[in-house]
Structures are given as C-alpha cells and as structure tokens.
Computed example of a mutant assay.
Amino acid sequence: MIALAALDIAGTTIEEGSAVYRALHDAVRRHGSSADVADVARWMGADKRTAIRALLALDGDASAVEQTFVDFERLLAEAYEATPPVAMPGVLDAFAAFRERGARIALTTGFSTDVTEQLLERLGWTDGVVDAVVTTDDVPAGRPAPYMVHRAMERTGVTDVAQVLTAGDTVLDLQAGRNAGARFVVGVLSGGVPREVLEAAPHTHVVPSIADVPMLLDLLDTPAAIATV
C-alpha cells in the first residue's frame, strides 16, 4: 500500500523546458563563474542557493550568492513568462490514480517557495490538486538530504516510510528518496537525464514518465510481485 507519493516538480510533474537550468547558468556566468553546461547539470534537483554557492566557487565571488540567486529568480520568471510551463502528459491522471489508491500527493522541489508558488499558480495547481508542497525553504538542507520527503510525510500525516513512493528525474531526487527510506524510489526519464545515469543511482524502478508510475504500482500489486517485494 502506498500512502504518499512524493513527487519532484520540474522535469517530473511539470514541463518547463529546462528553463531553470538555463536561468541558473546565465545567472552564475553573469557573476563571474566560468561554469559550463556540464557543471550546472551536476546540480540538477539541488537547492538553488547551494548550487549557486558551488558554481560561484569555481571562479566567482562567493559573497555574491544572494544577488546571483535574485538574478536567477528574475531570469526564470522571464523565461516562464515567455514560455509558460505546462503539466507533464498524463500527470493529472496519475494524481487521480494515486488518490484512487488512497494515497496523498506531495510535491517536493529544489526551488524556493516564491518560485514554486508562481509556478503552481500558472498551472492552476493552487487549490486541492495536491495535498502538500515542500520547498528548500522548508528544510535545513535540500537534496540529497531526506528532509523534504520527511517534511512531506509530516504535512500529510504519513508516518511509515514503507508506505512512501518518491519519483524524480535527477540523480539527487533518487538519492533523496533512498536516504529518506522510501519503499519505492522511482526515476523518470521525462527530464532528459539518460537512463544509464538514473540506473546507476539508487532506485527501485526507472520508467519513461510519471504517467507510467500507476501502471508500475498495478504490476507490483500482483500476488507474485507482492511475494518478492
């Protein structure tokens, strides 16, 4: 039985065209970092202030972290204004399937609360679509620390990690799910990270998208599968 599905946002439940990583790259470059695309990719799924601090340390002024973060949020807002984010195909059906199983739904993200609220407002996900939203502002450390998953459990009243499923499109998402002790740690390929990269990280399953997770749970609920889980 799954009591909680704790799901990443960008690249997992919401398609935003990798705008977050372009904005992050542009912001740190403007503040003196020589970070390239590969450097930025290593921080996919992480708290953005943590990512900025590390990327500026390559060449830039570490004292500029907060100003860089402000620039990052501005660039991201401009990108979302130009190309509004949309729900991933099949995500609302997946939410419905989780609810049919009696599970609650939480979104977890490396975004700040301000960015997350703007993002969810653009999609109309501000009233009853999910049961909880946890951002890096809500916890002492972002991924791969387990705190966002555990805070999602707290906010939804779930106390048993054996009843938790996590899903995300980055290595840090999978590490956080493993560190949280979730029963199912699912990688999704919709964010563009290659299958071999996700499969090299801690996981229980890797599937094409969040739309495939309910079908995965159906298979896991068969008597033969239950006997082996």
Score class of each variant (00 low, 15 high):
Thr222Cys: 02
Arg183Ala: 15
His205Pro: 09
Ile210Ser: 00
Asp212Ser: 10
Val134Arg: 04
Leu219Glu: 12
Gln175Met: 15
Asp160Ser: 12
Pro140Ser: 00
Glu196Phe: 03
Val133Cys: 01
Met153Val: 13
Val171His: 04
Val213Ala: 04
Ala132Phe: 10
Phe184Trp: 15
Glu196Gly: 00
Gln163Asp: 06
Ala162Arg: 15
Pro223Trp: 04
Val186Lys: 12
Arg178Asp: 08
Thr222Arg: 15
Gly168Gln: 04
Ala200Leu: 06
Gln163Glu: 14
Arg143Tyr: 03
Leu219Asn: 02
Gly177Arg: 09
Met215Ser: 10
Ala176Ile: 02
Val213Trp: 03
Leu172His: 05
Ala180Trp: 05
Leu165Gln: 06
Pro214Trp: 07
Asp173Leu: 03
Ala176Cys: 12
Met148Tyr: 00
Gly168Met: 06
Val206Lys: 06
Thr170Phe: 01
Asn179Pro: 02
Val185Tyr: 05
Arg143Glu: 02
Val197Lys: 13
Arg143Ala: 13
Val134Lys: 07
Ala145Ser: 14
Pro202Met: 13
Pro202Asp: 08
Asp127Leu: 00
Pro146Tyr: 02
Gln175Ala: 12
Arg143Cys: 02
Ala180Cys: 04
Val193Leu: 11
Ala162Glu: 14
Glu199Gly: 02
Val207Tyr: 03
Ala176Leu: 05
Val193Gln: 08
Arg155Leu: 15
Thr156Arg: 13
His203Pro: 07
Val197Gly: 00
Leu165Asn: 09
Gly192Tyr: 04
Gly181Asn: 09
Val188Phe: 05
Ala182Arg: 06
Asp137Phe: 04
Ile210Gly: 00
Pro144Gly: 08
Gly177Asn: 05
Val186Asn: 08
Ala180His: 07
Met215Cys: 00
Ala180Asp: 08
Asp138Glu: 06
Arg195Thr: 07
Ser209Asp: 08
Asp173Trp: 09
Ala141Asp: 06
Leu165Ala: 07
Val185His: 05
Asp218Lys: 03
Pro202Ala: 08
Val161Ser: 15
Ala182Pro: 01
Glu199Thr: 14
Asn179Thr: 07
Arg151Ile: 12
Gln175Asp: 07
Val139Phe: 05
Val186Thr: 14
Leu219Gln: 12
Val186Arg: 05
Gly192Ala: 06
Val207Ser: 06
Val185Leu: 08
Pro214Gly: 09
His203Val: 11
Val171Glu: 09
